[in-house]
């Protein structure tokens, strides 16, 4: 076995991919150091899944070079496959088999030493809180359980690089937190390199060492999440008024980002912490203005895209 200690876990240069006339990736460069978490951020249709499929040998690029742990994706697909584990966007479990049988299937295919196969399955079931459901066919699992089984199956082969395509989309907050814990522990305890895609700024912030933002087939930002957040700012507060006159008066005294005349709402900057909220409300009180509704808005993908590209909306799906 050749080891490539000094090559990055994932490296891509000038990757292009089109479907017919539709350019999905238009020259993407990536560099993910070993043992770190990388998050590819982008809205629906940005090309996140396409990037994962290219890196995991599922589809071929039109041009460009990609290497995983030093192995060329095009020329040494089997070496790449031996190094990676993929949890795709849609659950890749065998619905007719039970959770335990699914894991045993992976243990067999990864050709683990015979005696370890069973123990590996049992350990993973426990770690992903699936022990109780181990004997049930996977079709009967909830979305969150299927997602966990999916990741457990990915880990059977002890991959050096794990791809996770939107690992928490559709999960409830508790399952999402469990998933985050699992991901972080994999990196800290086992030194796995994690390549994940997400639509949530918060998720990228929580998990990733570096974040890249995909927009119209190119990366429009790349760096540590703090940097991105600094660029995006603190978020904002929206205020809705019942009375048009009060709405006008408030618009005059406050520092307004944007306004919506028909809904009588104002967007003002603010982190939503108690101090700044109190100051905001005091100013309104002072002017004897009544706020009908107040919403605190933490920065999300829309804000990121607004700041980075000036596009008011993050949607990138072509209209068909």
């Amino acid at each position: 076995m050749t080891t490539h200690l000094h090559s990055p876990a994932v490296a891509a240069t000038a990757v292009h991919k089109s479907y017919g006339d539709h350019v999905v990736l238009d020259g993407v460069d990536l560099d993910v150091p070993s043992g770190t978490v990388f998050a590819l951020l982008g809205p629906n249709g940005a090309g996140k899944t396409t990037m994962v499929q290219l890196l995991s040998t599922l589809i071929r690029a039109d041009s460009g070079q990609m290497r995983i742990c030093g192995h060329d994706v095009d020329r040494e697909p089997d070496a790449v496959r031996a190094a990676i584990g993929v949890t795709g966007q849609f659950a890749a479990v065998d619905g007719f088999l039970t959770g335990e049988e699914n894991l045993m299937l992976m243990a067999d295919l990864n050709r683990l030493p015979r005696r370890e196969r069973w123990r590996c399955a049992v350990d993973l079931l426990e770690r992903f809180e699936l022990t109780d459901a181990a004997g049930m066919p996977a079709v009967t699992y909830s979305g969150g359980m299927r997602r966990r089984l999916d990741l457990a199956m990915t880990l059977v082969g002890k991959p050096r690089v794990v791809f996770l395509d939107e690992p928490t989309t559709g999960l409830d907050p508790r399952s999402r937190r469990t998933m985050w814990d699992v991901i972080r522990r994999l990196v800290t305890d086992e030194g796995v390199t994690m390549f994940l895609t997400t639509q949530y700024l918060e998720e990228a912030d929580r998990l990733a060492d570096r974040v890249a933002v995909l927009h119209r087939g190119r990366l429009v930002a790349e760096g540590p999440p703090e940097e991105l957040k600094r660029q995006v700012g603190d978020g904002h507060v929206t205020l809705r008024f019942a009375d048009p006159d009060e709405y006008d008066a408030a618009a005059r005294i406050l520092d307004v980002i944007s306004r919506d005349e028909s809904a009588l709402t104002l967007k003002v900057p603010g982190r939503g912490d108690v101090g700044s909220l109190r100051r905001l409300l005091d100013r309104l009180d002072h002017a004897a203005l009544t706020v009908d509704e107040l919403r605190i808005h933490t920065p999300d993908l829309d804000d990121v895209f607004f700041v980075l590209t000036g596009d008011p909306t993050a949607r990138q799906e072509p209209i068909r």
Binding site: S56, L58, R81, A82, V86, A92, V93, L109, N110, G157
Partner: peptide, 11 residues
């Protein structure tokens, strides 16, 4: 089935 996509990414 998704599982076949998984098989394709395995050695």
């Amino acid at each position: 089935e998704g599982i076949v996509a998984r098989f394709r990414t395995m050695a």
